[in-house]
Design a protein around this nucleic acid. Structure first.
Lengths: 212, 212
DNA sequence: TAATGTTTGTAATATTTTTCACAAAGTCGC
DNA sequence: GCGACTTTGTGAAAAATATTACAAACATTA
């Protein structure tokens, strides 16, 4: 399906960073930007920026730089966030709730269309205008909701089962907040976010006295 | 200060993963584990595991494997999470609040000792038994709290200023949730968590049809 | 104790990612 | 239009990270 030379994950991560930055630039009425200026403002090497973009044909004009609006549009299209995407959140605890209420998601076309939980105390109640649904009805509900991205914000003990149910319900991508390595089919992509891992690395770095 | 051969960041990240896994193993009364078995259960290459550990002298016994409790203890010490660490949370919105209430942190010796916000509606109120303090008093308060790690959960527009204040207040490490690249002194280490970035990468990967 | 099997630690190799360096393309002032 | 700049896009080099492969260490069985 995808015959393009494969794009490194770090490049994709940086594309998202560039996009944020370009949105700010547009708001400041800057219409052109050079890779050198990107480096000055983001700390990301200018050649890195150019190489990242080079995975997707030409963007810039020699001697001038990049058109802010055009680059923004193209990166958004590459990342598929130029259109609305349905996302479901599984787990309506503190973290799940915070994510449902995070306005940044909607601003970037990630529309949360469903929230699921297993607790009878939560099912049927509402959170940020969304009904909390029974996680046991995930498959039936997602047949209608058609979300391809799920955010897993349940305890570690429930995460693997939830991941499998999500996959069976047609979900193709998981953003996993549970501190566990999920085993899923090749058809499903996973990214993990672990606060503890991040804190642990910082904790080490403080004493290791790493310099930039 | 640190003359040890420098440890790759990916290795540190994996150490945190191993630690979680070892805690589970101990709970299941497993007392010895081999690198092959680690690979089978976590998907992390066995040699990778051994190499990661090799940055910190020997751990295992040829022909046998690794003692679960001992390895756990040593990794915890390496990551400095064998002792209590004070952490402050700046920003008491949905996300900041969720973090304050996240029990996993305390379980791993990350003790949240202070929560700060700028909103007069929040200052003086309580969240999970902690008073919300005025972010303008960060420096004075941290002189007492002595946290070296701060979690930044404020809007992007406030994050840079907050980071600078935290650094001035003696904070040495920042876990930044704001979608912005912080500019801080060499003495401060930063790690960024961006939900949008994670979702954007997933969003790309769904259509790029990446296989493992 | 010897033979067999398992597992570690690491040197060597391979792969991935980043950075360098420069030709080609474009701008600007005169 | 010409010369002096600026900036892109990308091969080539460098650096970082992951994997392979294997000698050495230890266990186990007989």
């Amino acid at each position: 399906m995808n015959s393009a030379p494969k794009v490194p994950i770090p490049t994709l991560e940086r594309l998202a960073t560039y996009l944020r930055y370009l949105i700010d630039l547009e708001a400041s009425n800057v219409d052109t930007i050079s890779s050198t200026e990107v480096e000055r403002q983001t700390g990301i090497n200018a050649a890195q920026f150019r190489k990242d973009l080079s995975y997707f044909r030409e963007f810039g004009k020699p001697g001038v730089g990049y058109n802010v609006v055009e680059l923004q549009t193209r990166i958004a299209r590459i990342l598929q966030i130029d259109r609305d995407q349905s996302v479901i959140v599984i787990g309506a605890g503190n973290l799940g709730s915070a994510l449902v209420g995070y306005p940044g998601l909607g601003e970037h076309h990630f529309n949360i269309v469903g929230v699921f939980d297993s607790s009878p105390h939560k099912i049927g109640t509402t959170i940020f205008d969304l009904d909390i649904l029974d996680v046991r009805t995930l498959k039936e509900n997602n047949a209608l909701l058609r979300a391809r991205i799920a955010i897993i914000a349940v305890p570690a003990s429930a995460a693997q089962a939830v991941a499998e149910n999500a996959a069976a319900a047609g979900v193709r991508a998981l953003l996993n907040f549970a501190p566990i390595i999920l085993k899923v089919s090749d058809r499903v992509v996973v990214r993990n976010v672990s606060f503890l891992q991040e804190l642990a690395v910082l904790s080490y770095q403080i004493v290791a006295d790493v310099r930039k």
